[in-house]
Amino acid sequence: MSKTILYARVSTADQTLDHQRTQAEAAGFVIDEVVADHGVSGVSTTLQERPEGKRLYDKLRHGDTLVVRWVDRLGRNYQDVTDTIRHFMRQGVVVKTVINGLTFDGATQDPMQEAVRDALIAFMAATAQAQAEATKEAQKAGIAAAREDSTKYRGKKPSYTRETLGIVVDMLGQGAGTTEISKATGLTRQTVLRIRQNPVAADIALIRWGT
């Protein structure tokens, strides 16, 4: 019997596991099992190097579906992501994303469909790597600046938590509107707008307050 497995990577700056599962179920997925890595960097480790990620290679079988929030969960860079998706497709596993509802299926025999699918995989993987690298550099710079200013004026304490910030950023990535996000998180529209305009600054504000 085929299974639908959600793989999640949860770090201190990311959304919670419960939210990722809820988000997947809200997108219409019926999750049979969740495999999750906690506190593991997605920029410096491959899927096979993560304690739980490597279990997927033994656990997934032909006909199963692997669900991930986004393709960046499957590797640390362009090559990792494309290799991982293609490996699972060769095993008869269908890979689906919660964001944008993408499906990568190796079953198609039509050369045109294969070309479109492979081009999409390449584009999404390259985008994921570029975003990860940009975020990492911005956060490194922000953390350094925050530490330098730790004894100086920290500004007003943020009205959001790290978990709430993750939810806001995630919903923004899906194209959710300010009012919708405000209702979902309990934050004011002005706060959501500030986070949308500069999510790195929002993260730095939390660092300055030691959260």
Rank of each mutant, 00 (worst) to 15 (best):
G39P: 06
A119G: 14
K136L: 12
L56I: 05
V40M: 12
R117K: 11
Q113M: 05
D118I: 05
T12N: 09
M112W: 12
S41G: 06
R154Q: 13
M1R: 12
G166N: 05
I207L: 03
N77V: 03
T179C: 14
V192R: 00
V67M: 09
D58N: 15
I207D: 00
Y160R: 09
S150I: 13
V67Y: 04
Q48M: 09
V169A: 11
Q197W: 12
S41Y: 02
Q15H: 09
P111V: 03
R50I: 02
K59I: 06
A146C: 06
G186P: 04
T151L: 15
Q79V: 07
F29C: 00
Y153K: 15
P158D: 04
G53T: 02
A184Q: 10
E114V: 09
A138H: 01
S44H: 15
E33A: 08
Y57C: 08
V93D: 00
I31Q: 05
A8T: 07
Y57I: 10
D110E: 06
D118A: 04
S150N: 10
M89A: 15
A27P: 00
D32T: 10
Q79Y: 04
R196F: 06
V40C: 14
R76T: 06
D37P: 01
P199N: 12
L66Q: 00
A128R: 00
V192Q: 02
R86N: 08
Y160P: 03
D64N: 05
T108K: 09
R50C: 02
R196W: 02
V67A: 08
E137R: 13
T84L: 02
L165W: 03
L60Y: 03
A24K: 01
A202P: 02
A134M: 15
R117W: 05
